[in-house]
Design a protein around this nucleic acid. Structure first.
Lengths: 129, 129
DNA sequence: ATAAAGGTTCCAGTTAGGGGAAGGTCAAGT
DNA sequence: ACTTGACCTTCCCCTAACTGGAACCTTTAT
């Protein structure tokens, strides 16, 4: 299977697939003409990667998860640890963003948004707090 | 005032302050020895930048906001527009992260996390859905 | 005199790819 | 047989917003 077909079937852009080969996440074979040749196994791995990335795992997380995925003797606790650590980061980010949102919402609500120059948003940004 | 003092008073690292000069957000003077000399006005601008960045505005947003801040004749609606656009992006990100969190939470809850290899997390990642 | 603490510039690296150039290959149509 | 267009290849530069480090200079304290 050529890279275009893999791209279609996994939903990943060809560029991304080549990148994943570059950093050693997949190792497709090569045809005589130099084209990459993907097997079902590669496709499966790439699908795995796409799904993990959708869930916000970093590439390094993906590398770890992929190794666990391929290790038939792994302990599920190892996987759970990675997932929980990632989950904690996501929750921290959500908390951060919510704080930003709350502050900004308040400021936006306070701003008249008309032709006059007076603006509570700028007033807040200009204060040291 | 030297960069170190400015760093202390604004909470921004010296590296960041130099970077902001590089990209033209502040233009401190120079002493005979080549050291940057910051005035109160620069300090004020940097504080503004620090606060705006804390609220997640991009550097380009900051550039816009700073220009509005310095323009005594701006319309508050211009500021409000930038803020609302940023707010929308923040809310989109929160929604994204919440979806990730919900999926991951579910998966983590389903995983025994023991010595056995069976793991719903990997099972999910491996499936095309 | 010397050493520590501060300042300077410049270069490289970070994430996870995206854009685009220059060129080789393959299948179809004329 | 030739050409066209779609596909593939490698290569290099670009992104955001800094951070780290090297090599070097200046000021301050001992």
């Amino acid at each position: 299977m050529n890279i275009g077909d893999v791209a279609t079937r996994t939903g990943l852009p060809p560029k991304t697939i080549r990148y994943y080969e570059d950093i050693g996440l997949v190792v497709p074979g090569r045809s005589d003409n130099g084209y990459r040749q993907f097997r079902e196994q590669d496709l499966h791995k790439l699908t795995f990667l796409g799904r993990a990335r959708t869930l916000g795992f970093t590439i390094e997380d993906c590398r770890t998860l992929l190794a666990l995925y391929e290790d038939e003797t792994r302990a599920s606790s190892d996987v759970k640890r990675v997932a929980k650590s990632h989950l904690a980061k996501i929750e921290a980010k959500i908390t951060d963003l919510q704080a930003m949102r709350d502050t900004l919402t308040h400021l936006v609500d306070c701003c008249a948004g008309d032709d006059r120059p007076d603006c509570p948003i700028l007033r807040d940004l200009g204060s040291s707090s």
